[in-house]
Each structure stands twice: as structure tokens, then as C-alpha cells.
Design a protein around this nucleic acid. Structure first.
Lengths: 177, 177
DNA sequence: GTCAAATCAATGCGAACGTCTCGGAAAGGG
DNA sequence: CCCTTTCCGAGACGTTCGCATTGATTTGAC
């Protein structure tokens, strides 16, 4: 195939490195992400990190798209088995478990990072456009996405519980459903 | 008084340094903030920056609270002359001018930074609690704050215009006002 | 005028940074 | 078996970082 040498574990090793990036961002913030620290956290050498991600910029960009993909995959998964798809999609945007909170914190960190990066800010906008299109197909307008995003924000800061946020989403759907 | 030597321009010089921090965050992201670069951008020496902000952490924390205070000052200013205070407060959360967008981008950057800092995350929560209290006094619930925050987010990413966001806020108020 | 406090400019230090290079191990196609 | 390709560990290079130190200057209370 296109793979010479050992190419089998390529994706797994790549994913493991990205996982180390997420762990550092979640625990200590984006400031603490460096090639050396990522390598150390992943238990690999600096050379390996650089082999899979030639530069720090590419590493961060890959991490950004990986987080994005993970988020959309979550939404798609919920769409499959849902009596009320609109509610399913929107409540999926609220972090519930501690693992959810971790994912959302990291995602927000990268979103902020993307806001000051012309390339990433474009794909960020496209991600939201996709979500808006999906919601429109389900009969919901942009106000529902905004509501869910804001509730996710307030849940992350601790001003609301996940249960409160989901309740507000449900009543928001009823009002405009 | 408590000020020996020249204490008159103390606040102004402090503010000028913080302004340089904001400019760097807005133009190149939080990653690019360093003592040296801040000093250079502000047109002062490294020593001066260190005199007013003994450590980088204190510099960033001061910048965070300065941005927060600026935001609440905006809201308070709008409250004074407002026929519909609820609408005034909420629409003030939407960035309109390019200067607004700048302010909001910087604010979001620091909010993300605060999420991974135990001290700052506490004052972040308090800020939102204050806002929630103010809204409650005006007859609005947390769903309206969430809506406005989400709309601000979508406006920053370019998925909505400020006019669209404000229109959605107005119809959101009517529905629950 | 004296003097302590406030103010900073200059410089050095050790650590960490991103990146590059080089060498060799590993592995499958021919 | 060989040879190309992938893979990656080790190390060095030059830069930048946060921070500490030092000493000069300025200021206002006394």
C-alpha cells in the first residue's frame, strides 16, 4: 500500500500524542503546551512528536480539528436514536459528566485560540454553519444554538448545573419548537 | 499620603501597560504575551513592567480583572439612560463596532485563561452571578443571559451579524419578558 | 537640605523553548 | 538479500523566556 515500513499503528500513535495535548490543556491551560511537555506526558520522545507533527502550529491545528471532529461525532451519534432529534442535539451541547466538562473546556480553549488565527477561525465558522444547517433541518433557528452555547458556557463556569441548563433548553424548544 | 516619590501617574502607567497586553492578545493571542513584548509594545522598559507587576501571573490576573471591570462599566453606563433596561443590558453584550469585537475577543481569551486557573475562575463565576442578579432584578431569567452570551459567541465567529443577534434578543425578551 | 521611599533602566542567569540534524533501527516490496 | 522508506531517539543550536540583582534618579515628607 501507501505505507512503507510500519504504518499500522500510525493513527494510534498520532491520537496518543493529541491526547497528551488535551490532557495538558485541560490541566494547565494552552500556555503550558510545548513539544517537550507533550512528549513527556505521552511517554514518547521529542523526535516522535516531531515526526508526526512537523511543527507546533501543525500540532495545535491538528488538535483543534480533532476536538471539533469529536464534538460533531457526539452529535451525530445522538441523532441516530432520538425520539426528539432537536432536543437531543441541543442537550448534547451541555457538559454533564466530568469527562464532558473536560472535553468542553479543551474545546473552548482551542476555539479561543482559533479566534486569533485566520486559518482556524475559518473552519471554526464552518463548524458552526454546519450545526446551524443541521438545526434548521430539524426546525430550529439560530436562537436555539445560541441558547445552548450560552448555557454550556454558564455550566462550565459553575453558574448553572447541567440539569438546569437542559431544563431551560427544553422550555426554549417548546416556546419556538 | 500613602504615596512617596511620584505616585501621581501610577494608575496611568499601570493602565498603559495593561493596554499593551490587550493589544498583543488581540493581535496575536495570549501565547505571545511576554514581559519583554509587553514592555516593547508599551514603549517602556522591562524594569518598569516588573515594577508595576511583580510577576507575569499578576500581570495577567490584573489584565483579567481590568477587562472584567471594563465590561461591567459598559453595562452600568447603559443602565443609566435606558427606556428598556433589560434590552439595554442584553444588547450591550453583543459586539457591534470593530472596537467592540476587539474587546470581546480579548475578554474571551482571558475567560478561557481563567477556566484553568482556580483563583480567576472564582471571580469569573462571581461576575456572572452579578450579571444574573442584575437581570433577575430587571425581570429576566438566566435563559436570557445564556441567549445573549451564545449570540455574542456566534457574532464573534462571524456566523451572525450584530443586527441579527440584537433582533433575536428582542424577540427573546418579548417571549418571556 | 536630608533622607527614605518610589521609580525604573540595564544587565545577567539559568531554564525552557522550537527546530534541525544526524544516525541508526525496523520493516516490507522487489 | 537488498534497498528504499518509514520511523524516531539523542543531541545541539540559537532564541526567548521569567525573574533577580544592581544602581541611578526622582520625589516629597520632615
Amino acid at each position: 500500500m501507501r505505507v512503507r515500513g510500519l504504518g499500522a499503528a500510525h493513527d494510534e500513535r498520532r491520537a496518543a500524542i493529541l491526547e497528551a495535548v488535551f490532557a495538558i490543556v485541560d490541566a494547565e491551560g494552552t500556555h503550558q503546551v510545548s513539544i517537550r511537555r507533550v512528549a513527556e506526558r505521552a511517554g514518547v520522545s521529542v523526535g516522535r512528536v516531531q515526526h508526526y507533527f512537523p511543527s507546533k502550529d501543525e500540532l495545535l491545528s491538528a488538535a483543534f480539528t480533532a476536538i471539533n471532529d469529536r464534538g460533531t461525532a457526539r452529535v451525530q451519534a445522538r441523532l441516530a436514536d432520538a425520539s426528539s432529534p432537536l432536543e437531543a442535539v441541543l442537550t448534547e451541547l451541555i457538559p454533564e459528566s466530568e469527562e464532558d466538562r473536560r472535553l468542553f473546556r479543551v474545546a473552548q480553549a482551542f476555539e479561543t485560540h482559533a479566534l486569533t488565527n485566520s486559518v482556524l477561525s475559518l473552519s471554526l465558522k464552518e463548524s458552526y454553519d454546519d450545526l446551524l444547517g443541521l438545526l434548521a433541518a430539524l426546525g430550529g433557528g439560530p436562537e436555539l444554538l445560541a441558547l445552548a452555547l450560552g448555557l454550556a458556557n454558564l455550566t462550565l463556569t459553575g453558574n448553572l448545573t447541567a440539569a438546569q441548563a437542559r431544563a431551560i433548553i427544553r422550555s426554549g424548544i417548546e416556546k419556538r419548537g
